[in-house]
């Protein structure tokens, strides 16, 4: 394999991994607070269409990315009102949010089918990305750097900050957190909004970076991979980071292996690999006696009603 191809593959892997990482990171924080939002795919689509619509109308891709975060958060707010305030079933509401997202993005996107926009471009001047190392360090899309920064920030937030400690407390023992005076619902609302914004940004990665066009169901099921990734990473941000690149790597290498004429595995098999890996990890987690509780937040998907 020539260095040229190696770098090209690396660039594609980063592109494929970035949106999964962004969406999964948001969902990780949501689940750490004890809420399960299965509507990732829907929020990503809403973000994708919002980003494209804004970029196509105003000509500013950055404004598009910002509006994508707001739109994702707005969709998450619907989920929050239903599940947190009205204590509706989180699984059913999340699935409904996905179906809603598919429909509403198709409706909003209808006038934009067949248009293209100027994508986000690159963050650094092109002269920096001239040689091989320059490309590897500076040649990626801007959201790739945002996603790496987000990993560091989320790790710091969850493990080092007081607010992160409260969020984890709410996710592990809502009654206890409530009894010492923390607003369980308030914390969960913030987490859900953050998750929505991250999913929206992940969606904009498709419509502004990877394939700067609008077409129905642009994300084509990546939200489900991001959901599986959170479990795969057993709710740890660093593992999530590695997992995102593992999943992105498998998706890209599959194509390259086939394009090079190597058929190691059937494409259908590779397509199910992320989910298979998730099931395997779940099995391992539940087999380890001490680790059984180490992963999932204790209050995950459990509705909370404040008693008195």
């Amino acid at each position: 394999m020539t260095p040229e191809i190696t770098i090209a593959i690396l660039m594609t892997v980063v592109g494929a991994s970035t949106p999964i990482l962004l969406a999964a990171l948001g969902e990780l924080v949501v689940e750490k607070s004890g809420v399960l939002n299965l509507g990732l795919e829907g929020m990503m689509l809403i973000g994708a269409v919002a980003a494209f619509a804004v970029a196509a109308t105003t000509g500013s891709a950055w404004l598009g990315a910002l509006v994508a975060m707001l739109a994702g958060a707005a969709a998450a707010l619907i989920f929050g009102v239903l599940t947190l305030t009205l204590t509706a079933n989180q699984v059913a509401t999340g699935l409904a949010l996905t179906i809603f997202g598919v429909g509403v993005s198709s409706l909003v996107g209808a006038p934009f089918v067949g248009m293209t926009v100027e994508g986000l471009g690159t963050l650094f001047p092109e002269s920096l990305a001239d040689d091989a190392w320059g490309r590897i360090l500076f040649g990626h899309n801007p959201l790739a750097y945002v996603s790496l920064l987000a990993v560091v920030l989320v790790v710091w937030f969850l493990n080092r900050s007081r607010a992160g400690l409260i969020l984890r407390a709410v996710g592990e023992s809502d009654e206890a957190a409530h009894s010492i005076g923390y607003s369980v619902i308030g914390v969960r609302y913030l987490a859900v909004l953050f998750g929505g914004a991250m999913a929206g940004l992940a969606g904009s990665c498709y419509s502004l970076v990877l394939t700067p066009l609008w077409a129905d169901q642009l994300t084509a099921g990546r939200g489900w991979i991001a959901l599986a990734l959170v479990v795969f990473a057993s709710w740890r941000p660093w593992r999530l980071f590695l997992g995102a690149y593992l999943f992105g790597g498998v998706m890209t290498l599959e194509l390259h292996a086939k394009a090079a004429g190597l058929s190691l595995l059937e494409p259908e098999f590779l397509a199910m690999l992320p989910y298979l890996a998730t099931i395997a990890v779940l099995t391992i987690i539940s087999l380890r006696r001490s680790g059984a509780r180490a992963g999932a937040p204790a209050c995950l998907a459990k509705p909370f009603r404040a008693s008195a």
Binding site: I5, T12, A16, L210, T211, L218, A220, R222
Partner: peptide, 18 residues
């Protein structure tokens, strides 16, 4: 797949790189 924009784009890139 008949339709998966991101995958189709990556497939084109992989073919070009090869």
């Amino acid at each position: 797949t008949w339709y998966d924009p991101a995958k189709e784009a990556d497939a084109a890139k992989a073919l070009i790189d090869q």
